[in-house]
Design a protein around this nucleic acid. Structure first.
Length: 239
DNA sequence: AACATTAGCAACCGCCTGAGA
DNA sequence: TTCTCAGGCGGTTGCTAATGT
C-alpha cells in the first residue's frame, strides 16, 4: 500500500453531476431488491456509472421513502435553532431529532436562512437592548411574527412543476412505462425534462405529485398487483 | 429586454472513525 | 497493535432560478 488514501472509486470512470430519472430508478430498484449492504460495490451491481458515495448520498438525501420534502415548519426551524445551540454544526446529530429531514437539507437551511435570521435578530436584540424599552428574549422566542419563515420560500419553480406534469402526461399518453429496469435509458431522452433532482417528485411539496411518483415506482418495481396497476391507471386518467 | 447579482440547494470532496482482518 | 477499508460527516463548490438594475 502506497502513501495516502486510495480513491473511493476511479474518478475517470464515474459519472458526476445531477442524477437522471433512469439512474434514480436503477438505484431504487436495486436497493428495493438487494438492499445496500456495500455502497462501493453497489454501482457496478446496479448498472450505474456512479461512485458508491454518490449513490449513498442520493439514496439518503432524496430517494429514501421516508424522506420528508417541502418547507420546514416554524416548529422545525425552532428545533434546528435550539439543537444548533446545543450541538453546533453537527448536522447529522440535529437531523436525528428531525424525522424525515436529512443532514444536508438542514445544513442548507441553516446556511441559507436560519443563520441570516439569527444575525438579524442579534442585531435587533442589540438595538433594542441599547434602547430603554428593550424586551426580553429567551429560548423558544427566536421567531418573531415579522421574521421570514421558510413558508415564504417555494422550493419548486413553476417551470419544474410544468416539467413534472409533462413527464406524467408523457408517461401516461404513450403507455411507455418501461417494463425492465435495464431499459430505462430512454427516459433520459425525454429531452426537455430537467433531469436535475428538482423535478423529482419526492422533492415536490405537492403530495399529489409524490403520490403519483410513488405509484409509478410501485408499478415499475412490480410491487403492485395487476389489479392495483389498473386502479392506478384509472386514477391517473381521472385526474 | 439584457445583463449582473444574489439566493438556494444538490452534489462533490476529503477527512475522520470504527470494524474487522 | 497495526493496517485497510467502507461508511459517515461537515465544508465547499457549482449550477440554476430569482431578483435587481
Amino acid at each position: 500500500m502506497g502513501k495516502g488514501r486510495t480513491a473511493c472509486c476511479d474518478k475517470s470512470k464515474v459519472k458526476k453531476g445531477p442524477w437522471t430519472t433512469s439512474e434514480d430508478l436503477k438505484l431504487i430498484s436495486f436497493i428495493q431488491k438487494h438492499g445496500h449492504g456495500n455502497w462501493r460495490a453497489l454501482p457496478k451491481q446496479a448498472g450505474l456509472l456512479r461512485c458508491g458515495k454518490s449513490c449513498r448520498l442520493r439514496w439518503i438525501n432524496y430517494l429514501r421513502p421516508d424522506v420528508k420534502r417541502g418547507n420546514f415548519t416554524p416548529q422545525e426551524e425552532d428545533t434546528i435553532i435550539n439543537l444548533h445551540r446545543a450541538f453546533g454544526n453537527r448536522w447529522s446529530k440535529i437531523a436525528s431529532h428531525l424525522p424525515g429531514r436529512t443532514d444536508n437539507e438542514i445544513k442548507n437551511v441553516w446556511n441559507t436562512h436560519l443563520k441570516k435570521r439569527l444575525v438579524m435578530m442579534k442585531k435587533e436584540e442589540y438595538n433594542s437592548s441599547s434602547s430603554s424599552t428593550s424586551t426580553s428574549s429567551h429560548q423558544g422566542q427566536y421567531m418573531d411574527n415579522n421574521s421570514t419563515t421558510l413558508e415564504s420560500f417555494s422550493p419548486t419553480s413553476s417551470k419544474a412543476n410544468d416539467q413534472v406534469m409533462d413527464f406524467w402526461e408523457y408517461m401516461l399518453d404513450t403507455s411507455s412505462t418501461p417494463t425492465s429496469i435495464n431499459n430505462l435509458d430512454h427516459l433520459d431522452s425525454y429531452s426537455n425534462l430537467d433531469t436535475t433532482s428538482e423535478h423529482h417528485p419526492q422533492q415536490l411539496v405537492d403530495e399529489f405529485e409524490c403520490q403519483k411518483w410513488l405509484t409509478y415506482l410501485e408499478i415499475e418495481l412490480e410491487l403492485t398487483t395487476n389489479n392495483q396497476q389498473e386502479d392506478h391507471q384509472n386514477n391517473f386518467m381521472q385526474l
